[in-house]
Design a protein around this nucleic acid. Sequence first.
DNA 1: TACATTATGTAATGATCGTTACATTTCGCG
DNA 2: CGCGAAATGTAACGATCATTACATAATGTA
Lengths: 192, 192
Amino acid sequence: MARTVLERSDLIPVLAEIFRRHGFEGASIGIIAKETGAGRSSLYHFFPGGKDEMADAVLADIALWFETHIFTPLTQKPAAIALPDMIDALDIYFKSGQRICLVGAFALDDLRDRFARRIGPYFTRWRESLQFCLERDGRPSVDARAQAIQILAAVQGGIVLARATGDDTAFLTAVTASVSHLGLPVEPEPRI
Amino acid sequence: MARTVLERSDLIPVLAEIFRRHGFEGASIGIIAKETGAGRSSLYHFFPGGKDEMADAVLADIALWFETHIFTPLTQKPAAIALPDMIDALDIYFKSGQRICLVGAFALDDLRDRFARRIGPYFTRWRESLQFCLERDGRPSVDARAQAIQILAAVQGGIVLARATGDDTAFLTAVTASVSHLGLPVEPEPRI
DNA sequence: TACATTATGTAATGATCGTTACATTTCGCG
DNA sequence: CGCGAAATGTAACGATCATTACATAATGTA
């Protein structure tokens, strides 16, 4: 575990937090080297493609996490369980909205085109999984799709709101409201 | 109209679009000079505080626009009219989500603290105006506040989704859904 | 231990960063 | 026209940018 030698996989979560805090353009190699504790040589050794490869690896790592912890459960558990579970997991992952969604942030400026192959599929997979979960709950495809979009928007917008206003409750308020309109058998109540 | 002399107020909307496309860190003075057509001297003549003052002026300009076209109508017209009107105005302003909300984008990384005095009030005023509109419609304060947050999140999240997936309908889908749950006398139907 | 591989430290590259100085031009106004 | 003010062009500043070269150190394996 506590290896004395740095590994590429150890770097990725640290890189993710650096990109979250400074943004892609704001995270210079100097800052990255300082905040990771790795030298420039090590960084380019693990990521020969430079900053682009670092960000790409981070986005791939995020995609993997969501595939495992968010998308897959949505396709396996009934909506009344899967959706409250998702809300719980997201509230922890995004730290009540204070921790941003890097994929969403990258989608906002011209980084979107540079990392399009990571950004598009992330949201499409998420929407598809939500829609699948809602359709299996007996909802028409068109309704399920719109509801999935609404939930996704509540998540992304909740993050923006929470960070912009410093209101730690905004994220959960937005996300639970978007789900509570579905009239699921058990009202989703986030566990504290 | 087509003045031969550049004015500070002419620059601000152009600066806004540049910051939208490249982000704050990504918009270098070189890029700004090239894309505005103004020389470095002119830029620093109108904005002695440099890039920070440019962004601050842009944010102030945006705040003024929203105060006039979004917040004030919410406090003057009944919810059944004000909310559909707001949706129409936002769909045009944000170009179905393809044009980002600069204030929301700045809230995501460490720019949030640098421009906190612009970012916080923007969302607080918006939430307050929405909440006021809903309370006057007879809704309890706590409910009105939660509904306002949900609508705001749908707007911000709808922009992220629309840009990330290239789906021009996602923005309107998210925003109209967040409002349609209110059960207003007339179902909000966006005019095309 | 010996050796090839992998990892790191140091220092430098040219390019671009934000910003400034200063001379020149254009303007408003008499 | 004349003159002060406002606006612009050009060139440069030191700092920092992403990236590379190369020497040194640590490692896995035999």
